[in-house]
Nucleic acid binder design. Structure first.
Lengths: 186, 186
DNA sequence: ATCAAGGTGTTGCATAAGCGACAAAATCCA
DNA sequence: TGGATTTTGTCGCTTATGCAACACCTTGAT
C-alpha cells in the first residue's frame, strides 16, 4: 500500500540525473557520455551520482525501464494477464518508444538500447505469465518469457522496415492468431 | 576576486524557488501566492524556503533585483559613472523589464513591483554617484539618488502611456539635456 | 462568539548532497 | 612502447535539505 515514501531529495536528484542523461543523449553518442558530463549537466556532484546508480549502464537501464513503463501505461498490464489485447498494446508502446528515442539519440546507441528493451520485456512477460500461475516458479515460464521478449522485440525491428506501409497494430495482429491459437484460458 | 564559492545546492535551490515564484506569478496575484505554494512548486520543503529568504517580500525583492540586474547587463554601469549614455541604458532596461513582467503577472502586483524597482534604482544610482566621490559619504548624494530613482521610475510610467508614439530611447533623451546641463566632469 | 482549517515562522534531529583527496583504470598521443 | 591526461569508484567530513511538531495568527463558516 504505502511504501516508505522516498525522500523528495532523492526523487529530485534522480530526475535531474535522468533528464540530463536524456538531454546529453541528443548531443553525443552513448559511448562518449561520461559520468562527469552528466554530473555537470545535472548540476550535482559526481559523487552523488554513485549514491543513486551503480554506473552509467545502471543509469541507462533505469532510464529505459522507467520511460518504457510510462509508455506502457501500467494499468494496461499490471492487472491483466497475457492476451492478444495486452500484447498489442505492448507492441505499440515499444514501437512508439523506439521512434521517439531514435529521434533523440545518435547512432551507436541502438544496440545498447535494444538489449535493454528486450530485457525489460522479458521481465514484464514473466510477471504476466506468472499471474495465472501464482504459486509455481516454473522454469518453463521463464523460457517462454525469453522467447516472447525476443520475438516481440524482433517484430518491432521488422516493423520499422515497413513502417510506411502498415501500422503497428495491424502488423502485430497479423501474427497473433498464429501465436495464441488456444483459448485465453490455460 | 574569488568569493568563497557558494555551495551548488544553494544556487540550485535558490534558482528553483525564484523560478517557481515567477511561474506562479503568471497564474495568481501576488497576494494569493503563499510560501506553501512556492515550496510545492519548487519541490522543496517549506522550511528550506526560510533557510534562503526572510519571507515572501524578501523573495520578491531579490527576484526583482536579480532580474533587473541581468537586464541592466552589469558591465554597463559597474565600471562607468553616471552620464547620459548610462541613464539611457538604464531607462531602456527598466521599460523592457516592466513590459516583460506585465505580460507575465496579474493585476494587483504592480504597486509592489514598482516600489521595489524604485528602491533598486536608488541603490544603483547611489553607487554610481559614489564613483567619482569614493571617499565622502555625502548625504547629498543619497538624496540625489532618491530623486533620480523616483524621477526615472516616474518617467517609465509616463512613457507607458505614449509607448506607441515614441521609443524609450527617444523619450528619455528629450529630457536628458535638461537634467544634466553641466559638463560630464564634477 | 466559537470552532475548524490553513498559512506562518521556528526548532531539533535524521539524511542526502557537496567537497577534496585518493588509487586504480581507461584513454590519448607522441 | 611509454608517459601524460582523463575518467572512475570510493572514502571521511562538512553542510544543506527534509521532516515532524509546535505556537501563533488569520480567515471563514456556523
Amino acid at each position: 500500500m504505502n511504501q516508505p515514501k522516498t525522500d523528495p531529495r532523492i526523487q529530485r536528484t534522480r530526475k535531474l540525473i535522468m533528464d540530463s542523461f536524456m538531454e546529453l543523449s541528443g548531443k553525443k553518442e552513448f559511448k562518449d557520455i561520461t559520468i562527469t558530463d552528466i554530473a555537470a549537466e545535472a548540476m550535482i556532484n559526481r559523487a552523488t551520482f554513485y549514491y543513486h546508480f551503480e554506473d552509467i549502464y545502471d543509469l541507462l537501464e533505469k532510464v529505459l525501464s522507467e520511460v518504457l513503463l510510462v509508455n506502457l501505461d501500467c494499468s494496461n498490464y499490471q492487472h491483466k494477464e497475457l492476451n492478444e489485447e495486452v500484447i498489442t498494446s505492448i507492441f505499440v508502446a515499444i514501437t512508439n518508444f523506439q521512434q521517439s528515442l531514435s529521434n533523440r539519440c545518435h547512432r551507436g546507441y541502438e544496440d545498447t538500447i535494444a538489449r535493454n528493451i528486450r530485457e525489460q520485456l522479458e521481465i514484464i512477460f514473466y510477471k504476466m505469465l506468472l499471474k495465472p500461475h501464482p504459486t509455481e516458479e516454473d522454469e518453463g515460464l521463464k523460457i517462454t518469457a525469453v522467447i516472447l521478449s525476443w520475438g516481440i522485440y524482433g517484430a518491432s525491428v521488422e516493423w520499422k522496415r515497413k513502417s510506411n506501409e502498415i501500422t503497428p497494430e495491424e502488423f502485430i495482429q497479423l501474427a497473433l492468431p498464429h501465436l495464441l491459437p488456444r483459448d485465453n484460458g490455460v
